[in-house]
């Protein structure tokens, strides 16, 4: 999957409700051990559906940094 220019970032205030998981078209988000949503940068296409669905508004779609692992 080719990388998009943007990536979803989850803040520490994530309530782990799973709303983002349901709407992610690429299955890039998982709830990590019931604690928070974790985004797989290799799968995320930066579409922003998760950010719109997040009831806590803790997801932002930002330009990819240069430090994430390919």
């Amino acid at each position: 999957m080719s990388k998009s220019k943007k990536l979803a970032f989850v803040s520490k205030e994530c309530v782990a409700c799973g709303s983002c998981v349901k709407v992610c078209p690429t299955g890039a988000i998982t709830i990590y051990q019931g604690m928070y949503a974790a985004v797989n940068p290799n799968r995320c296409v930066g579409c922003g559906k998760c950010a719109r669905a997040c009831p806590a508004s803790v997801i932002s779609v930002l330009p990819r940094g240069g430090d994430e692992v390919a």
Partner: peptide, 29 residues
């Protein structure tokens, strides 16, 4: 339930938090 999960998984954190492999695969906190 989130609090329970945090407590239950505290041991992992005490052992050094998420492994680098986890961080590479999943961008969360």
């Amino acid at each position: 339930t989130q609090g329970i999960c945090v407590l239950k998984n505290r041991k992992d954190k005490a052992d050094g938090g998420k492994s680098q492999a986890d961080c590479n695969a999943a961008q969360g906190p």
